[in-house]
Amino acid sequence: MAWYLVRRFLQLIPVFLGATLLIYFLVFSLPGDATAAICGEKGCTPAVEASIRAQYNLDEPFWVQYFLYLKGLLTFDLGTNFAGRPIAEIIANVFPTTAKLAVMALVFEAVAGVVVGLFAGLKKGKLFDSTVLVVSLVVIAVPIFVLGFLMQFLIGVKLEWTNPTVSGDATFTELILPALVLGLVSFAYVLRLTRTAVIENASADYVRTATAKGLSRRRVIGVHVMRNSMIPVATFLGADLGALMGGAIVTEGIFNVNGVGNTLYRAVLNGEAPVVVSIVTVLILIFCLANLLVDLLYAWLDPRIRYA
């Protein structure tokens, strides 16, 4: 077990190197001159332009730029963005908001998805089940920005239950609506996964055994069906945490959340390679750790799985 953890952490190194290299290269290859973004409409004098290039190593070949960046990274110096703001500060500023949003979305989709999926699975073929299936299909099929704008308009603007946009403080109540929108599609997947697993497990031999032992239906489902049904759901949720962290660009855009997605979007537009790479690297690390957590959870849920 300890060995397994060590190995998993060692595996992070090549993932980290590969991912940073790839992303650095992609941003490097973007068309356009980074100085144009800094100097804006008016343009700078050639001398200023040259000094900017020197400051951000823009004249160096790709490999040199990449290694200089890595060197900074290893000494915990992420450098600054083109406006001169330290990247570490930017990340520290936006990550908590996005993390809050992602965790809220995850909790929503996990709890609601499992509960609805369980009841749909137990009432297979009944009205509730069919309704849930149709609704979840609609949710999966309709693009997220349509759902997002729709809910923002209905709940935020028409009903005025909450602010249609999120302020700089990003309080819990303000984030509820964006979190619902963010978790909506995954909620549909979770409920479908749960439903399928419950249907399959409800007819398993050991469930019949549990019934034959005299257990109440509540205990048969809660103890024997549920734990086995959670195995595929756990995998999905773990992978989804990473996606929620980075993939909130659309949702953050709709609700004007000052989070990772928005910052990343702006950095890509400006060709700010250090900012993009730094944020993505943090996302990758979160993704890997979430996956590790899932694998550990997995073995707890299903003792047949061994670490090898």
């Binding site: 398993a204 031999d205 050991y206 019949r208 055994t209 549990a210 019934t211 034959a212 032992k213 005299g214 257990l215 024997h224 734990r227 086995n228 849920l301 299903d302 003792p303 047949r304």
Partner: peptide, 20 residues
């Protein structure tokens, strides 16, 4: 009555016992 007065031994103990 189930499990107390009447108990069952099933065919395939691998699947009849809960694996987890």
């Amino acid at each position: 009555i189930r499990g107390n007065d009447v108990a069952v031994i099933f065919q395939e103990p691998m699947t009849a016992l809960n694996p987890v």
